[in-house]
Design a protein around this nucleic acid. Structure first.
Lengths: 224, 224
DNA sequence: AAAGAAACGTTGTATTTGCAACAGAACGAG
DNA sequence: CTCGTTCTGTTGCAAATACAACGTTTCTTT
């Protein structure tokens, strides 16, 4: 499956690894590939954690079953997404979530211990792999922190300004495009879409920002 | 400074490293120790990132200056706390935050590249160190994800139940103590303290939970 | 070009929250 | 024991939000 290989090769975990050296690295890591049918359980809550997963094809969901039995969806997974990585790297013994196949799926599993132990010989790429793994988790960390910063604001207005201000910083400019449509932005900020629209309008009328579709412009100083 | 050494030795980054092998590891890592006076800048927003910090003594704050100049406090740091680790491990080039000394401080800085490159010789502890670093970041990741799960609930009631339900899972029991008083729990859940008290009372009167001070008991099934 | 779907802004209302202020309980220091 | 402080629950009110419902614009499809 050439296509599946390219999913791995282009994966953030393997960035910087030359195509020619890829098979060597794979041989050293000895990952396991598995196929799942729609609605099948890929990983079950309570399972011992030893491996990091990469979804090669299909779609999946990370879900959590409450102690009272209530189920909630934490994330959706698409091809190329890494999953269970934080749990594998952490010290916790059992998975606190389940991963379910939404469609037919294939996934590759990498043993965490095997990633960590740089083998003496050829696999200098191990170092690169570890660095990538750290980068993946650290990036997620930064994203999560940013989101919490926004969510800790107690009004829709402040959440919007917190988010847009972060985007401005990130783009080093007062003008930037955001990667969300209104509904997605509302979901990200955990507010009602119509409330978001209202507040955006107010901000625009107040001369604090201007926007056309996904393009925003922060106009003047404001208080968070 | 014996005391400062013990701060490091007991630090999560060095867990599993025997006291006798500690000096050897330190020699290999060649950390830099610096002193700061109250109100001094430890790290400045925009600085290039190359090192991971550990606060040895004193108190500090991680803050962020908005693009409009508005300053907000992201976290407080105490002795033993690791800081800037996610930024060092990520690919971003410049610090998006500043670290300021609240009191007189001393901090130790470890070069990220030096941590990553397992030296061939004696330092087998490098592997342990890397594993610890991954665990630190991954644990934080899990904590942040849990908090976001709670904050994404749109009512105080649901936030409380989400939090308590997580705690119950974590303790594997319907009875558990929480590590917060009311004000701290309110701050964590980003709600008003009085609103939190009101909602807790309602939940108790409704027979959904019982509590005395910090001891909670989830009583029956409920809808999130 | 026309029809259908999706995205967006707007309005009105019932709920919920934040905020300020207060009173009792728990706790510690003197 | 008493005073003072902190923690907690409660109340009332102004403000903000969620929710549902609707009209318009924009984009896709046929």
């Amino acid at each position: 499956m050439q296509k599946l290989d390219s999913v791995l090769l282009n994966n953030e975990l393997f960035s910087g690894v030359a195509e020619g050296e890829f098979s060597q690295l794979l041989a050293c890591l000895a990952p396991v590939r598995k196929l799942y049918e729609k609605n099948e359980t890929i990983l079950a809550q309570g399972d011992p954690i030893t491996k990091i997963g990469v979804l090669l094809s299909g779609q999946a969901q990370v879900i959590r079953d409450d102690i009272t039995g209530v189920r909630s969806i934490l994330t959706g997974l698409a091809a190329g997404d890494v999953f269970a990585e934080a749990f594998a790297c952490s010290d916790i013994a059992e998975l606190p979530v389940s991963v379910l196949a939404v469609t037919d799926c294939s996934a590759m599993f990498f043993d965490y211990q095997r990633i960590l132990k740089t083998c003496s010989s050829a696999c200098s790429h191990h170092t690169r792999l570890i660095r990538n793994l750290l980068a993946v988790i650290a990036d997620k960390n930064i994203m999560l922190s940013a989101k919490i910063e926004h969510l800790s604001m107690r009004t829709t207005r402040k959440r919007i300004l917190s988010y847009l201000s972060e985007q401005a910083s990130r783009h080093n400019s007062n003008r930037f495009d955001i990667p969300f449509n209104r509904q997605q932005l509302a979901d990200y900020l955990c507010v009602d879409r119509s409330a978001l629209s209202i507040e955006l309008s107010k901000l625009q009328k107040g001369g604090i920002l201007a926007f056309q579709k996904n393009h925003f412009r922060l106009l003047k100083h404001f208080e968070l």
